[in-house]
């Protein structure tokens, strides 16, 4: 897993609530047996018109947001399906951080296992960031995981919460599998003590 320490980048303002994983990547892109190239399907229904051409009005397609690595969205981001493809799509598309007032549970778990930092900020702060980035698309936002802080060019700062264990994993770029494998003896002891099902 890619580690995450600090990022300074521009952002895309996605003014929508309840962005579900079917929007982040529609089911027709789930037929792959690898993780490669998922970015192609990222927000496909919104990025492309019915004729398959890029919709110039959709915020991700606007030239001023090209190269953005931060996505800012409304509450309850990532609801719905457990498909980790949604996280793979976002990271493959180029996002490294998503900022929202709240994330759905499974999406939350999936993102942290792929080095995608999700930042939960109060509703008013997110609205302020959306306004700011809409007005000044070239605003460079700094997300500092170690300090748990989001900073704006004008010096404004706001801190965000993150579980200490998850923070450590992200900073070091390690996922849960190594940790779980290190518990093999405990797991074996647990199995030995189990009632026959």
């Amino acid at each position: 897993m890619q580690s995450f320490t600090q990022l300074t980048a521009t952002a895309v303002p996605l003014r929508a609530e309840n962005v579900d994983t079917d929007q982040i990547i529609p089911a027709r892109f789930l037929t792959a047996v690898t993780k490669d190239g998922m970015g192609e399907g990222c927000f496909a229904a919104w990025r492309f018109g019915a004729d398959g051409a890029l919709d110039p009005d959709f915020v991700l397609n606007k030239e001023c947001h090209e190269g953005a690595e931060i996505l800012i969205a409304g509450r309850n981001f990532g609801s719905g399906s457990s498909r980790e493809h949604a996280v793979w799509a976002l990271t493959d598309y180029g996002f490294r951080t998503v900022i929202s007032p709240g994330f759905a549970d499974i999406f939350h778990n999936n993102s942290l296992k792929n080095g995608l930092l999700i930042v939960t900020l109060p509703e008013e702060t997110v609205q302020m960031l959306l306004d700011l980035v809409e007005e000044q698309p070239d605003t460079r936002i700094t997300v500092d995981l170690e300090a748990q802080r989001v900073s704006l060019p004008d010096g404004q700062q706001v801190s965000f919460p993150i579980d200490p264990y998850r923070k450590l994993c992200l900073l070091q770029g390690v996922d849960d599998l190594g940790y779980l494998l290190s518990k093999s003896a405990d797991i074996a002891a647990f199995e030995a003590a189990m009632q026959p099902a």
Partner: peptide
């Protein structure tokens, strides 16, 4: 409960989840 594909891998390998 539902899990993502990384977690599917964790359960296949260790029968456990964090």
């Amino acid at each position: 409960f539902g899990i993502g594909t990384s977690e599917v891998g964790h359960v296949l390998a260790t029968q456990c989840l964090l």
